[in-house]
C-alpha cells in the first residue's frame, strides 16, 4: 500500500493534477507519523510515508489548505472521509480545490496497543499477512495484527470511502460495531460511580487543548475557550469545576457534528477517554431523534439543527428514563 500511495502522490504532482499533496511523514520516531504537505514528486519520494501508524486524520487541514492557491491532493482513510464530508456540509472546505484519494484501510496500529501487548523498546514494525513483526531492542516478536489495532479501529463503524475522486484498494461498507458498549457500561453504574469515574479521568487533564485542536468538528474561527471573557482562556483548569466546564462544553459543541473519528482520544497525552463523552451524545441522539451518522452523506439534517413537535421533553432525563 505504501508504494501505491506514494506512486499516486508523485504522479498527481508530476501530471499537474495538483500542486501540493497532503499526506504523512515520519516524525521524531518511526511510529510518530505526522501530517505534511509535499510540493514535488522528489519530496514525496524522499519523505512521504504510508504505513499502519498513519492515524492522523488529514481532513481538518483542508480547511486552510483549500483556501490557498492551486489544487491540493489528499489521502483519506474511510473515517477521515466522514470528517471530509461533514466539513463540506458545514461549508468549510472548498471542494473544487481538493483532489481526494481514498485509501482502503485495514485498521491502524498504535503504540499504546503494542505496549499493552507487553512490547517495550519498539524500533520498527512491518506487516506480513495478518501478522505484525515487531522489532524491539530485545529481539523480534510476531503478534496478530488485530491485537495491535488502536482501540478506535477495533470498533470501526465503516470502511466506506465517502466522496473520493479516486480510490486505492477497495471500497468498503458499514460495519456492525459495538462502539457503545463502554457507554452502556457507564450508564449502568450509579451516579456516584459515574461521578467518581469522570473525576478520576478529567482531573488528569492538563488543558493542552490538543483534543480541541485536532478535532475536525472543533474548527470554529473563534473558540469560546480562546475568549478572554470566558475566564478559562489558555490555562490549566484551576479546579474540578473548570475541568468539567471544559469537557462538557467541548463535547456538547460537537454534538451532531462529531463523526466519532477518535482523534481526540488518540492525541490526549493524558489518556482521557474523550470518545466516551462523544459517543454518549451520539447514542442519545440516535435513540431520541433517530439514527444519524455525521459525515455519512450530504443530505441528512443534523439532529441539533432540527426538531419535531413530538420530540420528548427533557423530563425523560430529569425524571429518569428508568422511572427512578
Amino acid at each position: 500500500m505504501q508504494d501505491r500511495v506514494m506512486e499516486k502522490a508523485a504522479a498527481l504532482l508530476e501530471s499537474g493534477v495538483c500542486t501540493r499533496v497532503l499526506g504523512w511523514k515520519t516524525g521524531e520516531f518511526f511510529y510518530d507519523v505526522t501530517p505534511a504537505v509535499f510540493t514535488s514528486a522528489e519530496e514525496v519520494r524522499t519523505q512521504m510515508v504510508y504505513n499502519p501508524f498513519c492515524g492522523p486524520n488529514l481532513s481538518k487541514y483542508l480547511i486552510a489548505e483549500s483556501r490557498k492557491e492551486g489544487k491540493i491532493a489528499v489521502f483519506l482513510k474511510p473515517c477521515d472521509t466522514f470528517s471530509f464530508v461533514q466539513l463540506q456540509k458545514e461549508h468549510r472546505i472548498a471542494r473544487d480545490k481538493v483532489y481526494a484519494v481514498g485509501v482502503q484501510c485495514d485498521g491502524m496500529i498504535d503504540m499504546d496497543s503494542l505496549k499493552a501487548l507487553g512490547l517495550r523498546g519498539v524500533t520498527a514494525a512491518r506487516e506480513v499477512g495478518d501478522n505484525l513483526i515487531v522489532s524491539t531492542l530485545y529481539g523480534e516478536k510476531t503478534v496478530p495484527r488485530r491485537e495491535a489495532l488502536s482501540l478506535r479501529c477495533r470498533v470501526c463503524k465503516s470502511k466506506r470511502l465517502n466522496d473520493c475522486d479516486e480510490i486505492i484498494g477497495e471500497q468498503g461498507g458499514d460495519l456492525p460495531s459495538d462502539r457503545f458498549a463502554q457507554v452502556e457500561a457507564l450508564e449502568a453504574m450509579t451516579p456516584e460511580e459515574r461521578f467518581a469515574f469522570w473525576r478520576s479521568e478529567l482531573s488528569k487533564c492538563i488543558r493542552c487543548n490538543a483534543c480541541r485542536n485536532v478535532c475536525p468538528a472543533c474548527s470554529c474561527e473563534k473558540c469560546v475557550f480562546d475568549n478572554p471573557g470566558s475566564g478559562v482562556r489558555n490555562k490549566a483548569a484551576a479546579d474540578s469545576f473548570e475541568e468539567n466546564l471544559f469537557h462538557i462544553i467541548r463535547a456538547f459543541h460537537v454534538a451532531g457534528r462529531c463523526t466519532d473519528c477518535g482523534e481526540c482520544s488518540r492525541v490526549c497525552p493524558q489518556g482521557i477517554p474523550l470518545h466516551l463523552l462523544n459517543r454518549k451524545l451520539i447514542k442519545d441522539m440516535n435513540q431520541l431523534y433517530g439514527p444519524y451518522q455525521a459525515g455519512a452523506d450530504f443530505d441528512s439534517k443534523p439532529p441539533m439543527l432540527a426538531f419535531t413537535p413530538e420530540d420528548p421533553e427533557a423530563s425523560i432525563i430529569t425524571n429518569g428514563r428508568d422511572g427512578q
Binding site: 461521578f195 469522570w198 421533553e313 427533557a314 429518569g320
Partner: peptide, 27 residues
Amino acid sequence: NYYARRRMTLLFSLLDYMGIERGRTRV
C-alpha cells in the same frame, strides 16, 4: 423552544452521565 428542548435534553443527559444529580436541572 423546540431547539431548546433538544439541546436541554441532550445536555441534561450528559450531566447525568457524568454523575451530576439529574434532579438539579429542569425544563
